[in-house]
Every structure is written in C-alpha cells, then in structure tokens.
Nucleic acid binder design. Sequence first.
DNA 1: ATGAAAGCGCTAACAA
DNA 2: TTGTTAGCGCTTTCAT
Lengths: 347, 347
Amino acid sequence: MPSSADVARLAGVSRKTVSRVFNDEPYVSAEVRRRVMDAADALGYRLNQTARALASGRTRTVGVVTLGTPGYGPATLLVSIERAVRDTGYALHVVSTMDGDPAGIASAVTSLLEQGVDGIVISEPVDEGKVSIRVDVPVLFLGAPPAFAAVRTLTTSTGSELLARAATDHLLDLGHATVHHVAGPRRWYAARDRIEGWRAALEERRRIVPPVVAGDWSAASGYAAGRELARDDDVTAVFAAGDEMAIGVIRALLEAGRRVPEDVSVVGLDDMPVAAYVTPPLTTVRQPFDAAAREGLKLLVHAIENPGADLPKAAALPVELVVRASTAPPPSRTPGLAQGEVSCPTA
Amino acid sequence: MPSSADVARLAGVSRKTVSRVFNDEPYVSAEVRRRVMDAADALGYRLNQTARALASGRTRTVGVVTLGTPGYGPATLLVSIERAVRDTGYALHVVSTMDGDPAGIASAVTSLLEQGVDGIVISEPVDEGKVSIRVDVPVLFLGAPPAFAAVRTLTTSTGSELLARAATDHLLDLGHATVHHVAGPRRWYAARDRIEGWRAALEERRRIVPPVVAGDWSAASGYAAGRELARDDDVTAVFAAGDEMAIGVIRALLEAGRRVPEDVSVVGLDDMPVAAYVTPPLTTVRQPFDAAAREGLKLLVHAIENPGADLPKAAALPVELVVRASTAPPPSRTPGLAQGEVSCPTA
DNA sequence: ATGAAAGCGCTAACAA
DNA sequence: TTGTTAGCGCTTTCAT
C-alpha cells in the first residue's frame, strides 16, 4: 500500500503538502494540488484513517450501541441512525448488547471508547441501573435518561409518552368509557413511558385505569393478551404499545368472535408499513424514527465539534395519529345483539 | 488519557510487558500480570485500538455496506449481520448506500478501506454493474455474485431461488393450474432470483408462465398489484416475493370481494413476525437471515485469518415453508357460486 | 505557499 | 520470562 511519502516523492513535494491536499487545507497552489492528486491516482493511494486518527486524536466516527434484537422498532431505529450518521459525514461503529442491561451497555461503551469514537449514541437502552463508567466524549441517549456520567450527555426520543396519550385520547374521544393497555416489557423505558402516557390520558378524564396487560412487543404476545382481553365483555377499546402487538390482539379478538372495530377498537403505535394493509387497517400513532435520529445526531455532532458550547435542547417531534379502520365508537349496549353475529373468517 | 507507558511505569515493567498482558500473550508471570492489571485499573487505562491497528496493520474490524432503506428484509439482515459479527469478536463498521448502485458501493467500499477494515460484507447489492476498484481484503457478497475484483471473494445468500421454488411448488401441489407472481424491482438480485425460481417451478411442470406483476417490496405496491390481479377471474394463486407485498395483495383481493384462500391463495416470502397474525394468517417461506449471516461471517473470518487457505464453499441453507391459512386448493369452478358470497368486512 | 522534525500509542523483531 | 529498539502513516508545530 502506497503511503503519503510515496505520493510526496512522486509529486516532488513534502509529505506535509500531500497532507494539506487531502485535508483541503488552504495555502496550496492549484498546480501543486493537481500534481499531488495525479501522483495519488497513479499510485492508487488511499488515506489511512487509522494513522490519521492516531496523529490527530480524532476518528470522525460515532459509535452506536443498539439492541441485538429483531423487532420493528429497534431495527428501524438502527437504520434511521445509520442514515443520519452518514448525513453528518461521520463514520459509524455499531455494537450490540444482547439485552440492554447495564453491564452489557458498559462493555459496549468501553469497546467503542477503545475504538476511539468521537461520540456515542445509546439507542433505546432497557434497564434503569446506572452504569459506572466515566466517558469523555459526548453521549446521546435516544429514548432514555442518561445512564452514566459523561462529559456531556444529550437526550432525545420519539416521544413515547405523547404518542401514547394521543392513542388513548383518540379512543376516549370516540366515546369509549375507558381504554385497556397492552404494554411492552416493564424493563424498557419505551414501555414505561407509554404506560405513563396512557395512564395520564385516562386520569385526566377521571376514567378508571384498568390493569395493564403485559406483552413483549411481539405479535405472539399481543395475541396472548388479546385472548385474555376477549374474555371480558366490558373491553371495548385497546391500546397496544406496538403495532406488532396490536396485530396479534386483533387476531385473537377476531378468533374469539369479537368484531374489530364494531365490538372492540384497537390502536397500535409505530405505524409500521404493513399497518395500513392488515385487516382491518390499523389505526396507529406514527413513530418518528427518522426525525428523532436526525435531530439527535445534529445535537451530538454539535456537541462533538463545539466542546465548550452549551447543549441545545432537543426539539419536540410531531405527534401523528393515523386513523384507519380498526377504531370506531363503542357498540351501543343493546342486549341480544352481541351474540350470534357473523364474524370474519378466522383460524 | 493514560497510555501503556504510564501503566508500565506504575507497574515497574516495560511497555512491551503491558502489551503482552493486554494481548493475553504467553510468557508473563502471574505476578507481573496482576501488577500490570492493578496499575491499569488504578489509572483507568484503556487500550488504544487506533494505535494498535496502526502498529499491527490489523483493525479486527469488518465493514458492511448495506442499503439505507427501511423495509423488513434489509433491516433484519443488518441486525443479523451485526449479531454475527459480534459473535466473531470483530468490531463492526457500517456504511450505507442510498440505493446500492455501483458508484455508491464503490464509494462505500473505499471509505471502509480507508478505515482499515480487515474484511467487507456487501449486503444485498442491487445493480449488476461491475465496480472498478481493487480491494485487498476478503469480501463477502451476501445475496449476489461478486461485483468487483478482490483478493478473495466469498458469496452466500438466503437462497432466494430455492425459496421461490418452494413457494410456487406449494401452490402447484395444492392443485392450482398456474401461479401469478408479484415481484420486487428488477434491479435487485433478490427479485430476479425469485422470478427465476418461480419460473423454473412452473416450467418444470409445463405450466403457462403468466406475466410478472412488478412491485417494489412495499405493502402499497402489493396492494396495487392485488387490484390488478383481482380483475382477472382466472387468477387463483399468487406468490408475492415478500411478505409485505403479500399482505398488500391480500388486502386488495379482499376489498375486491375475492376471498382468501377460498377464491385465491396467496403465499409470501420472509416469514416476518406478524405473518402468523394477519388475517388470514399468511403462508410463507421463511428467510434464514440469521443462518445466512452467521454462515457468511464464518467464511469471511476464516478468509481473513487464513490468507493462503482456499475458500470453503457456503453450506446450503434450509428451506422452510410455513403453511398457514392463506393457501388452499383452487375453487372448484362451479358457476353461480362465485357470486354473492358474504365477504370479510373491509374498508 | 511549502518543508523539517517530532511525535501520536502501540506492536514486531530481536536481544538478553 | 522480560526488555530494547524501531517503526506503523499520519498530523502537528514551527521554520522558512
């Protein structure tokens, strides 16, 4: 592999001049610049970012620690982050933790620090436990409060609590007496935030707050929750904390002979691409992954490049309720009509 | 930041000894090892991988170039790759290309090479065009033939062609005269491979090969395709190249008054998590993302660590057809029965 | 506008 | 079992 010294020799200049050219520094004559470029092309020279990083102390890289789990949310967020990072001109290091616990995050962060990343994104961490490492680069917590001490910590989120409120309010506005909630695992911030939003919406209107039905984000867990909910004739409205769970809930309801939305309304949260095409099309609240990632990265890069400046607050993201066909006013309680209806083909 | 020299001084040993300890090299007495570790802890020392890479010429990092698009397939594959990389002990650099064209791939690869990655994974590239760069590290092409010259190229895939055959055969086995296909964009290898598999299955049984209906992997495009297909009463079986499209197809069919699977059978490809819970539950072929990623990375790491050795062939992955409720034998063509049926509530 | 010298923090090759 | 001596390829600082 040719080095800058080889290029310098061929171009008849010093190594520093080659460095200037490749860093777009001023004070290089157009003629020399051209000569250097030609020499580089001729040799097939490529900048060695490793050496550059060692010498300059900066890698122009940001690291993200993400959940190694599948599932629509985390996967989509990762893709959004990756795009947002690319747009900032930084390179991206990814390390996953099996389940987002403090120990896993600590080792992930340590490994990123060893790689010399200039900034870190912690995407949707799970547990609460504080991590006891000191970090000397800015850290962005996406969807959670800071979990450890860093020179400068930033936070953004897709706004789980507000999204949950919007979903619950929609159901209440439709006339439902209360709303049941199928939640994600309590270990997740996202799950807890949504529970908070749902509860707040109910309490604000002084509605009874039914017990939370626990899921794990999967459609299968939504299905299980739906079977449980289907046993209770008083259930007319369900807010599932994720679209996948909502789809499972609907399936269980239909199989139990409850019509959606005539008997029970269901709203999800995510607005995953298929939500508009399932039967019935799912009413849901869109999760602004792209906007959150872009916004978060803007803050992070700002913090990286302006040490000293104070940290701007994250802008609030829009809440977008998408009303489709899985929600409707509650059934008028006319006895005798609830039985023996023709229902959608199931099983 | 403390350096290995600081640790060495505090522990009363040479820098090389510190290096030995942190690389688990032999020939270090237990006592010295402990002293070094203590000193490192006391100082909060962390290995500087950048310096290590510069000195050793290896980064222990693999780079992956991926599509910056959302969509179940690419996103899930990225997560699988990321997990597989982690399991090998390598770090991961990710760079996305907006649309997988040769130019984008070339610049992505160049940037990875500058970062000094030890190996590269090209995940689901799109176009055919050859890329004209020489690469001096092993490259794994996931789901496509090699697109450029590299010291050593490897390939694996989830087996699109076989998966498509399995889907088509299932429908044919059910008694359908032929199978219509809703394909992904022709630019994608995955789309072309599936078309091939579908066509081969039909030709093998000497069935007529209907024109391909083009989609773009999205549920929306599947919906559009479904509307088109619904106009043709002869259509009794549809194979969609992706689950999202299949869900769109089903939706369009139901809205047009065609029952699924009584009038038309639909099979997808992916087996995304919600497939089992949509209405009707979707028959599909599972895409072995995890296995493909793991298998591919095993090969790549082998190539990285055994330059010289010849490249093992990738093992064939299992084909798993998941039969659910969206497929059934074709309707017996009894005139007069196809009309006026009660259909599932829609829109 | 250009160059010389001195490292960045580590490992490689050899010596002791 | 441990230490010494040279770099890895670049950027920095300071001259010129």
